[in-house]
C-alpha cells in the first residue's frame, strides 16, 4: 500500500493502494467514474482517455503511481465546462456520434488537441485524433465536428 495523492476533476484525492494498478481500474472501480471505457486495454483505441495536466493520456496503460501529484480530468469533469458544451453541440450538428463508445475518449482528444492548437487544419485534426478508434463514423463527421467546434468556440481555447 502506498499513499497516492492527486487532483481528480478539481477535487483532491488521497488513495492507499497498489501504485502499479492501471489508472483506468482506479477511476472506474474506486472512484466510480465510468466515462472512460476499456476498449483494447493496450493503448491502441483511446476509449480510456483522460486528461492529465490538460493533455490526453491512455488510462488503461497508465500505472496509478504516475498520476501522483498530477491534475486529472475525466469526461465527467470536462462535461461541466463551456468548452465541452461547444464540442458537444458541434458533434451533434455534424452527426459525429453513432454508437457512442469512443466518444468520451474522442472528446478528450479534441480538448487536448485544441488546448495545444486552437486552429488545427484537417490534417492536424486527423493526427490529433490518431490514437482514437471509431468503428462507426469513418471519421469524416468527427473531423467536420472539430472544424465546427474550433469556429464556434473561438477565444475559448
Amino acid at each position: 500500500m502506498t499513499k497516492i495523492t492527486f487532483t481528480f476533476n478539481g477535487k483532491p484525492i488521497e488513495l492507499h493502494t497498489d501504485p502499479s494498478r492501471r489508472f483506468l481500474d482506479v477511476i472506474r472501480n474506486d472512484l466510480k467514474h465510468t466515462g472512460p471505457k476499456e476498449g483494447c486495454g493496450e493503448g491502441e483505441c483511446g476509449a480510456c482517455a483522460v486528461l492529465i495536466n490538460g493533455h490526453i493520456v491512455n488510462s488503461c496503460i497508465l500505472p496509478l503511481a504516475n498520476v501522483h501529484h498530477q491534475e486529472v480530468m475525466t469526461i465527467e469533469g470536462f462535461s461541466k465546462t463551456k468548452r465541452y458544451a461547444v464540442i458537444e453541440e458541434a458533434f451533434i450538428k455534424e452527426g459525429a456520434v453513432q454508437c457512442g463508445i469512443c466518444i468520451p475518449g474522442m472528446i478528450i482528444a479534441v480538448e487536448s488537441l485544441l488546448n495545444r492548437n486552437p486552429n488545427p487544419s484537417d490534417e492536424e485534426i486527423r493526427v490529433g485524433l490518431s490514437g482514437n478508434l471509431c468503428r462507426c463514423t469513418g471519421y469524416n463527421m468527427i473531423v467536420k465536428a472539430v472544424l465546427r467546434a474550433k469556429e464556434m468556440g473561438k477565444g475559448l481555447w
Binding site: 502499479s20 492501471r22 486495454g41 503511481a65 504516475n66 501522483h68
Partner: peptide, 22 residues
Amino acid sequence: VQNRAWSELPPKFDAPLLFCFN
C-alpha cells in the same frame, strides 16, 4: 502492456517497481 493481467487486476511484475516518471 507486456505485464498486463486480466482487466481490473494489477499487472504482474516479477520485481518491485521503481516509478521514475515523476
